[in-house]
Design a protein around this nucleic acid. Structure first.
Lengths: 301, 301
DNA sequence: TCAATAGTGTCTATTAGACAGTATACC
DNA sequence: GGTATACTGTCTAATAGACACTATTGA
């Protein structure tokens, strides 16, 4: 006994409605994805004894056309109408790295009206984390002017003012991206207003040298998120190779958190996220170190 | 001494390029915002001594046309081409609540191809938190079929399987929204896969009774985020009136976190986020309670 | 007086921070 | 042997959990 189908004010059933539906021709924004692909690289060491220094790296692409010709931008592209946003992001990610199964998460959707001088473009940003060793197997590849840049950032100034309605705090964050050939830098102003319990953060580019679009904001946001998540998730392990020493792991945490950690406390804390293997490092100018791997599902029931 | 302007392969400067730029006429998705507006309400109490019970509430709107005619959906609307996403969200928020300066944060952007049966629609979801007392001043207003629903959710089943490549864990979350007139319920399946350190979460509606579109997923996601943020931010204070007792505050935390807290420990923890006032409650059938207000900028330098 | 909530003191368990001290390969 | 890193033991400080206890109002 079939139900009577629901009809709307025009007496149409849902099926009839959809058949005759006309999407209209009003103006729509374009939608893109922008990828923040991070990895950790080791620098060469002169002293055979010392461990190689590590640094956080970000993949950028040099623009070959207007606007922002010659400047550096995040890899990305348009989302097709018959493709989900996540699929578009994975497509871009794969085309840059040639690897599958990379950690990726949606970060934020940037929707200011004037963020692209050509037309209205809304951009959904994704952060991806890759282990450099896996990446080495097959990298470089196509993407003409893609390059890795060492990421560094620091707070250069903070000012605070109390107003009738609340508090306003401004922080300037200087972000530098550099490699052997190029050095890019810019400053993002974070304005935090507290009005009652309502906190609002506003980001603004106050100085930018070589960055296309609003991508500097995305970089700042991504670093902030990476830092935050490093403290309460296992996100950092996505930057590690399958086998690693606890010192290496600690270095990566230190780079991301921007502070030194005490070995004893660090080891205690990550003890159950990690499994010791039989293998160890060799040929270092010092005591060898046990290699560990990530403990799959340590936190699941 | 002006720099030589950069020209592209066609010999155009950026200015010339933008003047002649043609956005093309390929198909674009529509972009909407969907608002998750939460508040906390008090139920009437029969026993004059007892404190009124509180519950988390979400604002929904009953659809007056196809598709999903008669079902309930999150308030929302299209983002105009000359309006930022955030402006669109604030516009929607204001049109539902008639108040300004409400806490609002971007949650997630939903981009599956088939999420709207009419056409390709990408939706950016925002969560807003309002104190019910402020809201009472002027609410109800226009929005024909808007109504508050009590939100409850519980895990109904968890299963776990180990595969060659990693671990897969499925959790069913039952979400119920109800008020005096209507009871909606649905089940969301969360699939968490761990493959190496790469964790991925997939959400899927497995049963839905009265919810339009994929809005049940948004509700589940928002609850998860609210819970998470309650633990490490002051987000909860956005649900409180300007003056509140510590017991009231504790109840709201308990509702959101889904567990009971010990008064002594709770008071210690929030002690410096809060300022005692001269006022206290009266006419309760028991010892009166000091009223507190949020301590603006307690964490800023 | 008593029901119901408000609020405090204190013991214990757990976790984080600090730092000294031992261990070990390789040139 | 000396250098640079690997790793552990233990004291202390800070924080969270548990729970008993006292305080205060209005019907």
């Amino acid at each position: 006994m079939p139900n009577e189908p629901v009809t709307d004010l025009n007496g149409l059933t849902e099926e009839q409605f959809l058949k005759t539906y006309n999407a209209g021709s009003y103006e729509r924004p374009s939608v893109t994805v922008d990828m923040l692909i991070f990895t950790v690289m080791e620098q060469e060491q002169d002293n055979y004894r010392k461990l190689p220094a590590k640094s956080l790296q970000l993949l950028l692409i040099q623009r070959g056309g207007h606007p922002f010709l010659g400047q550096w931008a995040l890899p990305g592209g348009f989302v097709a109408v018959d493709e989900s946003i996540e699929d578009a992001a994975r497509r871009e990610l794969f085309s840059e790295t040639n690897i599958d199964n990379i950690y990726m998460e949606q970060l934020y959707t940037w929707g200011d009206v004037q963020r692209d001088p050509r037309m209205r473009v809304i951009s959904c940003s994704y952060m991806a984390l890759v282990d450099r060793k896996t990446l080495d197997v097959q990298a470089g590849d196509d993407a003409a002017a893609a390059a890795w840049f060492e990421v560094s950032h620091r707070m250069v100034e903070t000012s605070r003012s109390e107003q009738e309605q609340g508090i306003r705090q401004e922080t300037l964050v200087e972000i530098t991206l550099q490699n052997e050939l190029t050095k890019l830098s810019g400053v993002v102003k974070l304005t935090e207003t507290v009005h009652g319990p309502v906190r609002r953060v506003h980001r603004e580019i106050v100085q930018s040298d070589g960055f296309a679009f609003d991508h500097l904001l995305m970089v700042q946001y991504a670093i902030e998120r990476l830092r935050g998540k490093a403290e309460y998730t296992d996100i950092v392990f996505n930057l590690m190779p399958p086998l690693f020493t606890l010192s290496e792991l600690q270095r990566v945490y230190e780079i991301i958190l921007g502070k030194d950690l005490l070995p004893a406390a660090f080891r205690r804390k990550i003890a159950d996220r990690v499994v010791e293997t039989e293998e160890s490092t060799r040929d270092a100018g010092h005591r060898p170190s046990k290699l560990y791997r990530y403990n799959l599902g340590w936190d699941l029931t």
